[in-house]
Structure formats: C-alpha cells, structure tokens
Design a protein around this nucleic acid. Structure first.
Lengths: 339, 339
DNA sequence: CTGAAAGCGCTTACAG
DNA sequence: CTGAAAGCGCTTACAG
C-alpha cells in the first residue's frame, strides 16, 4: 500500500494525499476528512525512507553513551527518548563500551543515517571523530563530559551546590573529620567535584588532611581500595564523601568488612544519586545530578541547531546539583572508637 | 556530496560507485581501489534513506521495553545493540513506561520506519497492536514475556535449573524452613518461577507452609511488605527466596529494620541476578537470567524472519537459568533465635 | 483548493 | 567488467 494506491482509491492526486498526511492547511475540509478516513481504513502507513529522502531530514536523533550498564545512563536514555518522542522523533541508540574507535564508528553510522543530531555522553573522547561528524554539519551536543574548551555545545553540571549541601549536612550532624575520594585526575568532572568538595570544606573551615584524601577508579573496587586507605590511619575520618556512588558503595563494603557499621561508625555520602542508592542497606545519601534536565537540554539544543541549520556551539546555563539525605549519614555517635 | 558527484569525479557511472559501495564482486580490481580511495578522500557517505527506499529494507531493528530504569533491561539492551551492530544494523529504541497504549504507538512508529523487525520485552501487552504490526508482515519477537499461547516467536526462559540449584544450596547449608515471595499471579513468568520453586522444594522433600509464602508487587516495597509478613510468624523461615531481586532487596531492608542480620539471622536469595546484587552489603545471591542469550536469540530470530520473509512463529529452545551464590546466604547459625 | 511533474539519492536488471 | 535508465515512495514549487 503506497501513496499512489491511496490516491487512486480516493480519486485524488498523490499531492493531496501528501497534504493530508502532513496536515497542510490548504486542503478542503471535506476532502481532508474523506482521505483521512480512507487512510485509516486501508491501514496505510507512509514510507519514512521515501519521506526522509525527499525532505532531507530523518526525524532521527542519535544517542551515544559509553555503557548502558553503568547505572548513570538509563535515566538519561529514558528522558532523552521521552523528550524526543514528544517531538515525533525517534532515537537511534548506540554505545561505545569505552572504546574511542567505536565512538568514531558510531558517529559515522549516525552520519550515514542522516540523523538530525547526535548527543554524546561518553567518558572517552575522540576529537577527530567529532570533527569529522561536525564537517557534515551534523548538530552535535556533549553531555556533562568534555572540558569547557570543547568547540561543541556542552551541557555542563555545576557540582558546587550539592557538595556544599552535603558538607553542611555532615557538619550539622557533628562531623569534623571528613574524608574524600576523587576519581582519576584526567576527567574534567572529577576535578570539578574535587573543587566543589574543597570549596565546601573551606567554607565551613574544616581541615583537609592529605591522608583523608584518596583517588579511586570510579568503580566499586576503587572505592573499596580508597576506603581501606582512608580507614587505616591513626585518626580516621568519621565520614567519607565519594565523588561517585559506585565508589561510595565500595566504601560501604569495606566498612562492613572491617566491622564498622554504617552510619553509626562511619557516614558515607555518594555523588550521582543513582537508583541503587535507595536500594542499599542503609540507603546511600548522595548528591543528585539532574539527568532529566541534562537530557531535556540536549534534545532541545539539538533540535534548535537542526532547525536553524546552525551547528555552532551554544552557551548554556550550568545545571545545579542537590544533596539527598538518606540512611548512610548520621551523628558520629561511636566516633570515639575510631582512633 | 552524492553518488553522482563521486561518479563524475571518478569518471565512471553511479552504478560502478554503487557496486564498490556494496562490495560487489563484479568490479575490476583497479577500478574498485581507485573508487574506494576517492570515496575516502571525499569523505563521501552514502545516503541511507535513499538506499533503504530502493532496497525496501531499513537495516533497522526496533527494541521496545517497559522501562529502561528497571535494572533488568540495560544488559538486555546492551547485548541487543551489540549483536545488531555486528550485522551492520542499527537499533531504534523505545520504551512504553508500562502503558499498553504507548506500546501500540511504539509499534506503529516502528512500522512507519519500516524496520526489519521488532523485539518486545514489556510486562504489559497489547495483542491488538501486535496483530496490527504483524499485518504489515513485520517480524516480531517477544522476549520472556507472554504466555506459551502467543502466536509470535517467543524467547522463553526455563526457570527450573536455577531454582533447583538455589534450593539445593540452601539445603546444603542446613536450611529447612524456606519462605518464598512470588509476584502477581497474572504474569506468566511469576507462575513459572513459583512452579520452579515448588518443584525444587518437593525434590528435597522440604515443607512448604502457606504462612511461608507471600505475594509481592515485584518492587522493593512489595518485598518489604511480603518479607515483613513472612518474618512475623511464630516459626519463621531461616531463608527467604524471592522471585525477583528487587523484592529480595526489600527483604534485606526489612530484615535490617527488624534487627536481623543477613545472612546470619536470615539468608536471602533473589531472582534475575541484576548488577545491583553484587553491590549490596552483603552481596545478594541470585538466580541468573541469561539476558545476553535472550538478546542474541531475539536478534537472530528477527533477522532470520526478515531475510526469509517468513514471519511465522519460530519454535526455540528454552534458555536455562543458573544460581549464583554470594554473601546473602549462609548457615542458619543463629536460627534458634528465630522462634 | 487541487494536480502534473520533477526530483530526492540510491540500486539493479538489462544490455553490451 | 561497465553504463544507461528505470524506479523505490514520497514532497513541493508551479500553474491553474
């Protein structure tokens, strides 16, 4: 069933069918309704490839992330797809598995599909591949990833407010010895979170001891190792703030191993506010990253660029984080046992 | 840059360019290489819409799930996309948010996109929408969802082996009083898991008391409530087997609230083996559902149907589950405290 | 308000 | 091994 057959059966030209399909205002009311009914009766579905070939757009947005299994992403994907759908746009989804060659591949295929834009949220980067895609004047948006110097539109998160709220929360509970686990220095977001932590500590005039600072690999194991290091000192922190949830969970594991009870012997705070936070026993307090806003801004920016045929970098406001208190933080009641 | 321009620059016809693009064997070696080089130089990327319009296929597979945020799905999506990519196929992803009207919508859009097939993994169903899609002779595969009576190809999981291994594991640890939390009776998979549990219990000649059985909503909260009920009896179970991980986690929460330590006061076993299992403290023992195999079979079945233009139901072997022991199960050491 | 016709960028049967 | 040409199913500027 194609537009030809419908036209023949309706006794009009394909142009009219097309106009009805696209809700053009220049169709007589009665014709419109008659055709509409016929289309429904015939179960006719227009061919998107033909349509896209003709109009030169695909009504398709690409979304590339490092890893669906990383629990940071599903919510992002969810909201991205939801936003796109509301605009009648489908989403082609792909992941790189942290391989920058695969990022190049993914981008290439997005170009072939003639997508109206691509949002990228990966920890690995491939400037060359991005540049290649940009050369096809494909709208491109990065999400919370690259440094501020990137030539592409970038959705950035301001980590300050959340970290400040977290430190204030711990401070008010009575914590003075607060440890911190950061991620690898090469990530912009890692540096940013560390800066946010330091600023919040300074604001409260809290001491930042080198032996209360550690670096982890952003995974659970790294959190275990870093946590072990922080807890082996003579004077140990009564609370540990981790720059992501996975490592905070690692800290909970190592605490349990060492016979420390969270939160009474040790308070733990994460960063990201993954869904898993509320599943932990006790539930993990964490700094929320507004993944819904990130997705919304990305879709909007992409569509704007695509409609205005303007793939220049857009300057967007930073998104704010916010602290969510749960069961993993409490007064440092049995802190005395800790030295 | 289109195939015309490339042809002109190469001094050949578009047919030859097309043949090179598609690695046709009927091109002289030297021509092939010259054109290949030129294509690379020009950064020419063929237009997929035009290609698909011509060949009548889209090289696109649809994937519809209920909810990306449900941690069961990411791994499935991951493997599905990986398998498809290996065949040079992209994946359009969509989710229904447990709304069967949205399932209809999603399927409709897949038809419009002219996808080569759709895999559906949702708890809600919409027979009418599936039938409508099937009428367009669109290959359709259900994943681990509908009953055996469905007219569509269905990837089914056999829950027996995993449940048997789990019960055997508990039995060998010394557990005799084993409680069970099932999901809502209307789900095929729920009934199947319960049957697997009962068979495994009977095999070991273990007593199944009504007060050790409960029904939950498959979410964490339902697990808490069901767990609370199982633990309030005079003679309480020393181990609880939940028919999904989320409810098992709920049991861990309620145990903690009641001052019971997992695993010493209560062993807990889940079903699904979500990534979150290994994050819990203690890590949750669980029955693994082979999500990678489900995805692989789905992609294969879809491509087979699509190539053979045969959208008839395929009879596939059931996939096997397997028990994974972790820290949430141990000897019922302090079981005496429990009566 | 409607139609005839061109054309989007490919692929492929046919002919040579 | 290669090319001329038809055609996939739409949309749209143009003419009426």
């Amino acid at each position: 069933m194609d537009i030809q057959s419908v036209a023949k059966l309706a006794g009009v030209s394909t142009a009219t069918i097309s106009r009805v399909l696209n809700d053009s205002p220049h169709v007589k009311r009665s014709t419109y309704e008659r055709v509409k009914r016929l289309i429904a009766e015939l179960n006719y579905v227009p061919n998107t490839s033909a349509r896209n070939l003709r109009i030169g757009r695909s009504k398709l947005l690409g979304l590339i992330v490092s890893d669906v299994n990383n629990p940071f992403f599903p919510e992002l994907i969810d909201h991205f797809e939801r936003m796109a759908r509301e605009q009648g746009i489908d989403v082609i989804f792909s992941h790189t598995n942290y391989d920058s060659d695969r990022l190049a591949h993914c981008l290439q295929r997005m170009v072939e599909r003639n997508v109206d834009g691509v949002a990228v949220c990966t920890s690995e980067m491939n400037e060359e591949a991005l540049a290649a895609a940009a050369r096809f004047s494909m709208p491109l948006v990065l999400m919370n990833q690259a440094g501020p110097r990137t030539p592409y539109t970038n959705i950035v998160v301001d980590h300050d407010a959340g970290a400040r709220e977290a430190i204030d929360h711990l401070y008010e509970l009575g914590h003075r010895r607060i440890g911190f686990i950061s991620g690898p220095e090469e990530f912009e977001s890692t540096r940013d979170r560390k800066k946010a932590f330091l600023a919040a500590m300074q604001r409260r005039e809290l001491e930042v001891r080198p032996e209360w600072m550690a670096v982890g690999d952003l995974h659970l194991e790294g959190g275990q190792q870093a946590g072990a290091r922080l807890l082996e000192g003579r004077v140990r922190p009564t609370a540990i703030f981790s720059s992501n949830d996975l490592m905070a969970i690692g800290v909970m594991h190592i605490a349990r191993e060492k016979g420390l009870e969270v939160p009474h012997d040790l308070s733990v705070v994460g960063f990201d506010n993954l869904p898993v936070c509320s599943m932990m026993t006790p539930p993990l307090s964490s700094v929320d990253i507004p993944r819904d806003r990130i997705a919304a801004e990305a879709v909007q920016a992409l569509l704007r660029q695509s409609e205005e045929k303007n793939t220049e970098k857009q300057k967007l406001a930073k998104l704010r984080t916010r602290f969510v208190a749960r069961g993993s933080t409490a007064k440092p009641a049995r802190a005395r046992r800790s030295s």
